[in-house]
């Protein structure tokens, strides 16, 4: 066997190193480009009125998206109230009781599939069960759609986080005579608190930027939200409608709303990382 020349091999090695460095920086460039574009184009729309006023017809100065900001807050809050407790309890079953039972295995598998189901399909599903029978779009249907997206995410992270809690902790608490539910909620939950908060924050971050599941559930509205049983204004669908409109001032508003959503999602995502890191120290 003739040994290949070292120079050729080194050259190939160096080329690959340069390529992989270049390509991994490409992702950073894309991120930077997106952040910069949203910041540069969105800043102009942000002022006090943006947070407090109703939208105006195209061409009319002033106005804001106060109603959509409030609506997005309401929808996300209701989704969190619905999704987090059910997800937590489902995760408790997977980690504490289910183990390898048939129900637990099926739930794990279904959660994975549900997590990968396109959010627009979840929107169609909620449309068929909540909007079609009543004949009316509603903020509450939007919240249910978002909570369905949160549910499997929270259940699986809860399971993972509870699995990290050492068994000795459970055994000791049980040995003291505490019932199982109290052990879980009082001891295991407390030990896994940071992880659980991280999971919930990540799930909220994920749904607060969602548009597709709201398109035909919450719809949108140019008025202040009055009832959760009626169409509810929200930022993401407003961005979609305004961006597709031919009016320059509406497009500017859409950029402002994009900046707001982007900032909220990034704060939640980075915040959850900080919470999680506290655990390890």
């Amino acid at each position: 066997m003739i040994p290949r020349s070292a120079r050729g091999r080194m050259a190939v090695d160096r080329t690959i190193k340069v390529l992989s460095t270049f390509f991994s920086l490409l992702a950073l460039v894309a991120l930077g480009w997106i952040l910069f574009a949203v910041l540069a184009r969105g800043m102009g729309a942000i002022n006090l009125q943006f947070f407090t006023k109703l939208p105006t017809p195209p061409g009319m100065a002033g106005g804001g998206l106060g109603n959509a900001i409030l609506g997005t807050g309401i929808i996300t809050a209701i989704a969190t109230i619905l999704g987090v407790p059910i997800g937590l309890l489902g995760g408790v079953y997977l980690a504490e009781f289910g183990a390898d039972s048939r129900l637990a295995t099926a739930t794990r598998f279904t959660s994975n599939v549900l997590m990968g189901t396109p959010s627009i399909i979840i929107g169609v599903f909620v449309y068929t069960i909540l909007v079609l029978p009543r004949g009316q779009f509603s903020g509450y249907a939007g919240a249910v759609a978002l909570s369905i997206i949160m549910l499997p995410v929270i259940a699986r992270t809860t399971e993972d986080m509870l699995a990290l809690v050492p068994n000795a902790l459970r055994e000791s608490a049980l040995a003291l005579g505490a019932p199982r539910w109290k052990v879980t909620l009082g001891v295991v939950f407390r030990a896994a608190r940071n992880g659980l908060v991280t999971g919930a924050l990540l799930a909220v971050a994920r749904v607060s930027g969602e548009t597709a599941p709201l398109l035909f559930t919450a719809l949108n509205s140019p008025f202040w939200p009055e009832s959760i049983m009626r169409p509810m204004p929200n930022l993401t669908v407003t961005i979609f409608n305004y961006a597709m409109s031919p009016f320059a001032d509406w497009k500017a508003m859409a950029w402002g709303a994009s900046l707001l959503i982007m900032a909220a999602v990034l704060v939640l995502a980075v915040g959850s990382r900080i919470v999680f890191r506290q655990k390890s120290t």
Binding site: V38, A205, T211, I239
Partner: peptide, 9 residues
């Protein structure tokens, strides 16, 4: 973490 609609804009 960047929402889909931001990619769209």
């Amino acid at each position: 973490a960047v929402p889909s609609i931001i990619f769209g804009m």
